[in-house]
Simulated assay, not measured.
Amino acid sequence: MHEHLERMGVDLRLHILRQLAETLKYARGKRLYHRAHALQSVLVRDVEQPFPRL
């Protein structure tokens, strides 16, 4: 992911950030918590696609 970051535009970065925020909101709504939130803990799939997924 790090090597792809430089090629990502603002829209794509915001898309990934929104996905992450929605995922955390859902987990908190289900009362699921994780103490080790870090960028290294996020798996981004399909980075070669127009809109990668978490």
Rank of each mutant, 00 (worst) to 15 (best):
M1A: 15
M1H: 11
H2A: 09
H2G: 11
H2R: 15
H2S: 12
H2N: 14
E3H: 10
E3C: 09
E3L: 08
E3P: 09
H4A: 11
H4N: 14
L5I: 08
L5W: 15
L5K: 10
L5S: 11
L5A: 10
L5D: 06
E6P: 04
E6A: 14
E6R: 10
R7D: 15
R7C: 02
R7I: 04
R7Q: 11
M8V: 03
M8P: 03
G9F: 02
G9M: 03
G9C: 06
G9W: 00
V10N: 09
V10T: 11
D11N: 11
L12K: 09
R13H: 09
R13W: 03
R13V: 06
H15Q: 07
I16V: 07
L17F: 07
L17P: 00
L17G: 09
L17N: 02
L17C: 10
R18A: 07
Q19Y: 00
Q19A: 09
L20F: 12
L20Y: 01
A21I: 08
A21T: 11
A21S: 06
E22T: 01
E22I: 04
E22Y: 04
E22W: 01
T23L: 04
T23G: 13
T23I: 05
T23V: 06
L24Q: 04
K25A: 12
Y26T: 03
A27G: 08
A27S: 12
A27P: 00
A27N: 06
A27L: 15
R28G: 04
R28I: 03
G29W: 02
G29S: 11
G29H: 05
G29P: 01
K30M: 12
K30P: 01
K30S: 08
K30C: 06
K30G: 04
R31V: 06
L32F: 10
L32I: 14
L32M: 11
Y33W: 11
H34C: 05
R35P: 00
A36G: 15
H37P: 10
H37W: 12
H37S: 08
H37R: 10
H37G: 10
H37T: 07
H37Q: 14
A38K: 15
A38R: 13
A38V: 01
A38H: 15
A38W: 06
L39Q: 06
L39S: 12
Q40R: 13
Q40N: 14
Q40A: 13
Q40H: 15
Q40L: 07
S41Q: 13
S41M: 08
S41A: 14
S41N: 12
S41W: 05
V42K: 05
V42G: 00
L43I: 14
L43T: 07
L43D: 03
L43A: 05
V44C: 07
V44R: 01
R45I: 07
R45L: 15
D46T: 02
D46P: 01
D46Q: 11
D46W: 06
D46N: 13
V47K: 01
V47Y: 03
E48R: 11
E48D: 13
E48F: 02
Q49F: 03
Q49I: 03
P50W: 01
P50H: 05
P50R: 02
F51T: 15
F51I: 08
F51E: 15
F51Y: 13
P52R: 03
P52L: 02
P52G: 01
R53K: 09
L54C: 14
L54V: 13
L54S: 08
L54Q: 03
L54A: 06
L54G: 10
